[in-house]
Write a protein that binds this DNA or RNA. Structure first.
Length: 255
DNA sequence: AAAGAAGACAACCGCCCTTTG
DNA sequence: ACAAAGGGCGGTTGTCTTCTT
């Protein structure tokens, strides 16, 4: 049995929103708040699908949105978050105040991809384009769910993280692998492999904080251990919402 | 100046997960 | 426990704008 459509397509407008529709939607949400998108169009007098209303509000009409060009700092932050999270645009957007997942996704596809390619970096793997892929040996802690997860993971994704190496979602399955070392890596970092990605943690005494490890902060600006990250300058962001600079990776869970 | 190509981005589609009855 | 509804997400498409020839 298939799902019923979210709305009756025959009697809904499609395409670009008019000023009047925007005004109606804004007025309704100001009066009643967000929520119950399915019934909102009718209540607000809009001939739109509820999902369309939600998208319009979240991506363009919300008062807290920051419109306009992305800054260089935002560019770099997006690149670093993407290297960590992959195409989890909503997670990336959550770390960029005033930006939406859709906006970041579009910006990635139109600007940043090209920017990385011009630098000779594969935008999917964030590694030099001709660099061979390191072998990853996996010891899975998962048991019963392994087969099911692998079934999911095999699905090829267009983001380049395809096949079994790329978990379909960020998870906290621990892996032991030859850590990907930046050239001349100065520290004895503890690498926590999560979902095929390396997290540097502060769960031991030998590590830099997550921000420093990504180059978001350097050690002079951060209270983490006395690392000398070769990072660029600080963006000033409270990266991952962690003012202490300590990664609580639970905050990265998908909702 | 006109036409076609390329770029940019708003919006839609369909799937998945969570919640609810 | 199960099915349906609701909401959210990532991928893709459509359309408008800008650039190039």
């Amino acid at each position: 049995m298939g799902r019923s459509p979210c709305c009756e397509k025959a009697h809904t407008n499609k395409g670009a929103w008019t000023k009047e529709e925007d005004d109606r939607l804004i007025a309704y949400i100001r009066a009643h708040g967000e929520g119950c998108w399915r019934s909102l169009p009718k209540a607000a007098g809009l001939l739109r699908c509820g999902k369309s209303c939600r998208l319009r509000w979240i991506n363009y009409l919300r008062p807290d949105l920051k419109r306009g060009n992305f800054t260089e700092e935002e560019d770099e932050l997006i690149i670093k978050l993407h290297s960590l999270l992959g195409n989890k645009w909503s997670l990336i957007a959550a770390r960029l105040p005033g930006r939406t997942d859709n906006e970041i996704k579009n910006y990635w596809n139109t600007h940043i991809r090209r920017k990385l390619l011009n630098r000779g970096i594969d935008p999917m793997t964030h590694r030099p384009i001709n660099e061979p892929q390191p072998e990853v040996k996996t010891i899975s802690f998962a048991t019963a769910s392994v087969e099911k997860e692998e079934e999911k993971a095999v699905v090829t994704s267009s983001n380049g993280f395809s096949g079994k190496e790329r978990c379909p979602d960020l998870n906290l399955e621990l892996r032991i692998s030859p850590p990907y070392q930046y050239q001349n890596q100065p520290h004895d970092h503890q690498i926590l492999k999560t979902g095929g990605r390396n997290f540097t943690t502060t769960t031991t005494t030998t590590t830099l904080c997550f921000s420093c490890s990504l180059g978001i902060l350097n050690s002079e600006e951060c209270s983490c251990s006395n690392g000398t990250s070769s990072s660029s300058s600080s963006t000033g962001y409270d990266f991952l919402g962690l003012e202490s600079g300590v990664l609580d990776y639970r905050s990265l869970e998908m909702k």
